[in-house]
Write a protein that binds this DNA or RNA. Sequence first.
DNA 1: CTCCCCATGTAACACGTTACATGATTTG
DNA 2: CAAATCATGTAACGTGTTACATGGGGAG
Lengths: 178, 178
Amino acid sequence: MSIKYAILGFLDWTPLTGYDLKKQFAASETFHWSGNNNQIYTALVQLYNEGLVSKEVQDQESGPSRKVYSITTEGREALRQWLLTPPELPQLRHPFLAQLAWAAQLTAVELDTLLSQYENEVYVKLRMAQEQAQRDTRQSPRRTPREELLWGQIGNYWVAFYQHELDWVRRLRAEVTE
Amino acid sequence: MSIKYAILGFLDWTPLTGYDLKKQFAASETFHWSGNNNQIYTALVQLYNEGLVSKEVQDQESGPSRKVYSITTEGREALRQWLLTPPELPQLRHPFLAQLAWAAQLTAVELDTLLSQYENEVYVKLRMAQEQAQRDTRQSPRRTPREELLWGQIGNYWVAFYQHELDWVRRLRAEVTE
DNA sequence: CTCCCCATGTAACACGTTACATGATTTG
DNA sequence: CAAATCATGTAACGTGTTACATGGGGAG
């Protein structure tokens, strides 16, 4: 469960509640746990039991009490250890390729419709990634130039990925049409 | 469970056993169900119950009896319907980006080591994808030029993906070093 | 009045990976 | 003699998604 380390990373930045973390995860594809209640709250409990985070309960007049989590010294050490572990390769799941694999039996029009739909969806995603990257760089209050560079290149990564995808499908569409 | 449609696709090509399918899946990243026993055999049972495939049991003198599955007319129809469904966007899971997000706290040497490890792993993957693509085109006994084109572009896709990844990490490494 | 935000959590389900279990035949 | 290949399947576990449940406060 690498979500634990992602959480430790955010908490190393500043103390946060489960709800805050949920928003952080939802905001970036890099932390792909799509704003997932289930995993975040259970991971926080586990991290707490392992002593990697501490919590401060703030009772509120209305609603459930906020639980603000902070990283502990042990947590910082665990995070650092994880940072040094060998990198994992990306996992790309691409059901559309499987669809295309058998799509030769479609008519020319049907196939082009499929490709054009895909092209549009990718285009929308690309725009979203671009806006996200801009938002990130504009307000980026990163701690060091190194961190700034890394976050910049990460945002960049997603833009480039969808751009690459778009180029690919456009080329394919052209080839299929002729 | 889109694995069912992937199976139907292969069976539309030629009758196969579960074991054959397992090898097919293992051979290509496009069908990302990593040669997964569990899902293949249960999916076949389900497809059979739904009447989308038929099976011929061949008793053997030794070992378990082979079950050769063929696609039925209903199966062909289901496959065609699936081919026309709106395309799904790719899902890219990239834990290394999450690692990088917090890697600014590492020393320059540690960070470069990490990036160089990653570069090597991606390079290996790229080479594997290239070989796979070559093998595919060389022996490709595809049914139509359209199918040939599509399979070619799919193999191509994986090569381009890892190439893109390699370029990205090399650029990043250069930027971090200076 | 409805919808969204805050804030916590649980439950059910779907999907994926690894390992286990059996056992003959072939290859190194 | 060990190992990989053929060929079937099951079990356990881990991860990920969606929906449910509760309930106050504010905005449109």
